[in-house]
Amino acid sequence: MTATQYSLVGDIGGTNARLALVERGSVRPHAIKVLSCGDYNNLDGAVRDYLARVGVAGVGEACLAVASPMRGTQVRMTNNHWRFDTEEVRQQFGWSAFKVINDFTAMALGVPHVADGQLVHVCGGPGDSRRPRLVMGPGTGLGVSGLVPIRQGWVPLMTEGGHVDFAPTDDTEMAVLRILKARFGRVSVERILCGQGLLNLYQAHAEIQGVPAPLDAPEKITSAALNNTDALACHTLRHFCELLGRVAGNAVLTLGSTGGVFLCGGILPRFLDFFLESPFRNGFEDKGRMRPLLEFTPVYVVTEPYTGLLGAAEALGNPEV
């Protein structure tokens, strides 16, 4: 197979770069490698090393999903030292095309290609496949995107839905808002519904209850909750799930996404059983007169670890991206 029959796809975060090859007309990644961004001075070095490792001299085109904003052709990674110009890189490798897209846009585009066996049903009815889909997930931040169906595919929505206001619904949540507002000023839902947000929520509940908050990292809180060794951690993680449900339900009402909700990212699969037994469903469906609409909308946890690569491959041939 010649080099031009391959395309390079990637999903690049602050720590790791996931790279793979796809064949023309396919979205299925092959030769997946996970490289540490810290091992390379910049993107070009990582690409060269990857191609050498998989024994391919070059590729015809490329699409990378990145967790960073873009200005024109300039990409400055938010959480690592990589900086590059997309046109310079394209010319350097002789690619016919080089797309760089937002990482959660790629996540959304990948969802329709996820196998049924990698979707865990959480709640909800059959939904309406003709309507938009909501794609969201807590990670380093809270990613929110959507898919609008068109005749021959999907149009992804690039949103900043993770930065909507946190809207408390009871006295405890009013206290959470007051505590976090003192720390951050404005409080978005991302201040609570991400890795660091879980720690923020844990510390706020400790202050409300007047108890110590000995755990200092989100993974410690999750572990303590799963092992039932810290009552505050368990209470916090349950509240985290409920709030995620409420925010997801609000987004369904805003987007009209009765086509389904797809919860992506690496956090939820780590405590999937806990999540399935959590108050997520109550938070999601508790919308007063709109409850039947939410009960009709299916919700899934996506366990496919390379959804972003599927989306980057889809973006190569998607003229809407």
Rank of each mutant, 00 (worst) to 15 (best):
M1D: 07
T2Q: 15
T4Q: 10
Q5D: 15
S7E: 04
G10V: 07
D11F: 05
I12R: 02
A17D: 12
L19P: 08
E23N: 07
G25E: 12
G25T: 05
V27A: 12
R28A: 06
K33Q: 15
V34D: 08
L35V: 12
R53H: 07
R53V: 03
V59P: 04
G60Y: 05
A62E: 03
L64W: 08
L64T: 08
A67F: 05
P69V: 14
R71K: 13
V75Q: 13
T78G: 02
N79D: 14
H81P: 01
F84G: 04
D85H: 09
T86R: 12
R90N: 08
W95M: 13
S96R: 09
A97C: 05
I101H: 02
N102V: 09
F104A: 10
L109D: 06
V111H: 02
V114H: 04
A115P: 00
D116W: 03
H121Q: 14
G124Q: 02
P126Q: 15
G127L: 09
D128K: 01
S129K: 13
R130Q: 07
R130Y: 00
R131G: 00
P132Q: 11
M136V: 00
G139F: 02
L142P: 01
G146I: 02
V148L: 12
V148H: 01
V148E: 02
R151E: 03
W154F: 09
G161T: 00
H163M: 15
V164S: 11
V164D: 10
D165Q: 12
A167T: 14
D170H: 14
E173N: 15
R178Q: 14
R178M: 11
I179C: 01
L180M: 11
L180C: 07
K181D: 08
A182S: 14
R183H: 10
F184A: 12
G185W: 11
R186K: 09
Q196N: 04
N200K: 00
N200A: 07
Y202H: 09
Q203Y: 01
I208Y: 11
G210Y: 03
V211W: 06
P214H: 14
L215R: 08
D216N: 13
E219S: 06
K220D: 14
I221A: 10
A233S: 11
T236F: 10
R238P: 00
R238G: 02
C241H: 03
C241T: 03
L243K: 03
L244W: 03
T254Q: 04
G256C: 03
G259Q: 02
G260D: 13
G265S: 05
G265L: 07
L272D: 02
L272P: 01
D273L: 12
F274A: 11
E277K: 14
E277S: 07
F280M: 10
F280H: 08
N282L: 13
G283D: 12
E285G: 01
R289A: 10
L293F: 05
L294D: 08
T297A: 08
V302L: 07
E304P: 00
P305H: 14
P305K: 15
P305C: 13
L310H: 06
A312Y: 00
A313E: 10
A313Q: 10
E314R: 04
A315I: 09
